[in-house]
Design a protein around this nucleic acid. Structure first.
Length: 598
RNA sequence: GGCCCGGUAGCGAAGUUGCUUAUCGCGCCGCCCUGUCACGGCGGAGGCCACGGGUUCGAGUCCCGUUCGGGUCGCCA
């Protein structure tokens, strides 16, 4: 039978008491972590979000009635205890923050009883995530997860205080907006007042924040909930939070400068990590050529090296023909792995094929100078020497090569192998924080599916001034004033300088295959705004969830989201999405379901 | 949509080339215990081996299908 807390007031949280509190009478409230009944006395560990504190019930101190009640305490009961703080003398618990003290109970109320929880409420459990997510409210009681959610709250607080200090205004933008083409699938919301019409939930507040710049707001930010109806990953949820910002009268360097200081501030305050500034920058093309990735993991080396010129006349027809057709041959040198067994090399070859390669050529130079290789027999000694020299290969090293007509394939395959090798060979310094700006992204990327170019970032991104003439002559080579911030091989955020001229924006939309009518229908409000005085502006958005994930040391984004969704986009706790309960709801919206969904 | 891994008491696991009553730890329930804190002692309860079909004298184990969960590729301006 649950008791009332009438007349009681909680004094403080568990770990807010220490030896200086000895002698004080306090009232503590929280959950029973564990109760140890020794017969003549009962020890109860009381838990709240701050930690654990030991309560002692002794009949001589608390009386028979309270002592009998204490004997009934079970895990996860919610209780209120009034008692006196005292020292634990010799019997201290060094594993507990409050291990030097305990509460000698005088009064006890059981505010709520509990069934036996479906899994232990403690750190380090191996319970399947499936079960934990169904009882997420219990999972969140576990200290390690609670700490992560509390750290996320701290991050949000620090972001706000830093940006406010820098003159940014926190402005909310609507989440019922217009569907835009391009990009990810939208979540749609049917309109009751306009049957047959739909709102879309924003994938980002992109256009709205640009309009705020037109409004003269100058510096804006928002912790914006965003929605993308795509498949989930360990670091991807259908709804997620962006630290979204936009600045007027700035160029690339200005955005980078303030954001470097933001990152430095956050990591110093939250993680006690000092990020040296400036954060290194790398052009997109160099990131691809050197690491085979637009978000390179800089915690280890093993760069990609181009040997197309070295092998263009060699005896190995695969390389020779590829070079002759304007293709690419690149390799990586895996230091000290000449002894790698054939089986493992074959596994990497399989990985290479899955990543799109036709095959993987390999050569190991043994310590005694002999070679093992899939292709060395086609090359002369001089050609081999030249190749090994170009790769910086010394005895004991293993070389892996990929050739393809498309440079994207070579990048992708070797980039994948590099990451796998870095992980498998423990080359990654897990304690390192390697930040990197990747700049000068291509403006466009070709879409086979659409049969035309797509915006790599988005259609409002400013091309680099010197590349503007190429819009008509060499569209694929136009670079954008776009930048990504990368941490340890993860994209934390990205942004760009935006187009602020109506004529350039019209040209861009035309290049992306929009007819003037389509452009007007989709973005008319933006184009209209661009006729009334637009400040040059630029911005950036971080994935707050990913940032928080790194800062708390998790490998899944779910750990920093209070109520995350599972792989199929559903919520196993509240069982959403679900069919509508009341048919009237559908009728109000003017929606009729296909037969198979009724 | 493809590929990979997994599902055995509330939780975590074991279960051999197919064989009697499916095992272990934690938790849970009862009794005992005045310094425990991974409390201890004694006793006890708890299972549609994910679901469906097949092979077999006999299936947790082998085969097929389904389902649920995770990872990954596609996808994610």
């Amino acid at each position: 039978m649950a008791e009332s807390m009438k007349g009681l007031q909680r004094t403080c949280r568990c770990t807010e008491l220490d030896e200086s509190s000895i002698g004080k009478t306090v009232t503590m409230m929280g959950w029973v972590q564990k109760s140890r009944n020794k017969g003549g006395l009962v020890f109860t560990d009381l838990r709240d979000r701050s930690g654990i504190l030991q309560i002692v019930f002794e009949e001589c101190d608390c009386g028979a009635e309270v002592f009998e009640k204490a004997g009934r305490l079970r895990s996860e009961f919610v209780i209120a205890v009034t008692g006196v703080v005292r020292s634990r003398g010799k019997d201290q618990n060094k594993d507990l923050k409050t291990g030097a003290i305990e509460i000698s109970a005088r009064a006890l109320r059981i505010l709520s009883e509990s069934e036996v929880p479906p899994f232990p409420i403690e750190d380090g459990i191996k319970t399947k995530e499936e079960v934990r997510l169904r009882y997420r409210y219990l999972d969140l009681r576990r200290p390690e997860l609670a700490r992560k959610i509390m750290t996320r709250a701290q991050i949000a607080f620090k972001v706000r205080s830093f940006l406010q200090e820098e003159g940014f205004l926190e402005i909310e933008t609507p989440t019922l907006i217009k569907s835009t083409p391009e990009g990810a699938r939208d979540f749609l919301v049917p309109s009751r007042l306009h049957h047959g019409s739909f709102y879309a939930l924003p994938q980002s507040p992109q256009l709205l924040k640009q309009l705020l710049m037109v409004s003269g707001m100058d510096r804006y930010f928002q912790l914006a909930r965003c929605y993308r109806d795509e498949d989930l990953r360990a670091d991807r949820q259908p709804e997620f939070t962006q630290i979204d910002m936009e600045l007027s009268f700035v160029d690339v360097d200005d955005v980078i400068e303030v954001n470097e200081r933001l990152l430095q501030y956050l990591f110093r305050e939250i993680c006690n990590v000092e990020i040296p500034l400036p954060i290194p920058r790398m052009r997109w093309i160099d990131a691809m050529e050197t690491y085979g990735s637009d978000k390179p993991d800089m915690r280890f080396g093993m760069p990609l090296q181009d040997v197309t010129d070295v092998v263009k006349d060699c005896g190995f027809s695969v390389f020779r023909d590829c070079a002759a057709e304007g293709g690419w041959v690149k390799g990586i040198c895996v230091k000290g792995q000449a002894h790698m067994p054939r089986k493992k090399i074959d596994a990497y070859a399989e990985m290479a094929k899955e990543a799109g390669a036709k095959g993987l050529a390999w050569l190991s130079l043994q310590e005694d100078g002999s070679r093992k290789s899939s292709f060395a027999k086609f090359l002369s000694e001089d050609e081999l020497k030249a190749l090994e020299g170009a790769m910086g290969c010394v005895p004991g090293d293993l070389l892996l090569f990929v050739s393809d007509k498309k440079r994207e394939t070579v990048w992708n395959v070797l980039g994948t192998l590099r990451l796998a090798l870095g992980r498998d060979l423990s080359l990654i310094d897990e304690k390192a924080w390697k930040f990197l700006w990747v700049t000068e992204f291509p403006m466009f990327e070709w879409s086979d599916e659409l049969g035309r170019y797509q915006a790599m970032h988005h259609p409002f991104t400013m091309p680099m001034e010197e590349d503007l003439p190429m819009l008509d002559t060499d569209q694929g080579s136009v670079r954008a004033k776009a930048y990504d911030i990368v941490l340890n091989g993860t994209e934390l955020g990205g942004g760009s300088v935006r187009i602020h001229q109506a004529d350039v924006q019209e040209k861009m939309l035309e290049k992306l295959g929009f007819t003037p009518e389509m452009a007007d229908q989709q973005f008319g409000f933006l184009m209209q705004a661009f006729h009334y005085g637009v400040p040059p502006h630029a911005g950036l958005a971080y994935g707050l969830d990913r940032l928080a994930m790194w800062m708390v040391g998790s490998d899944t984004i779910r750990d920093v989201i209070a109520f995350p969704k599972i792989k199929d986009g559903s919520d196993p706790m509240m069982d959403a999405p679900a069919p509508v309960f009341d048919q009237q709801q559908l009728e109000d919206l003017g929606i009729r379901l296909a037969k198979e969904n009724q």
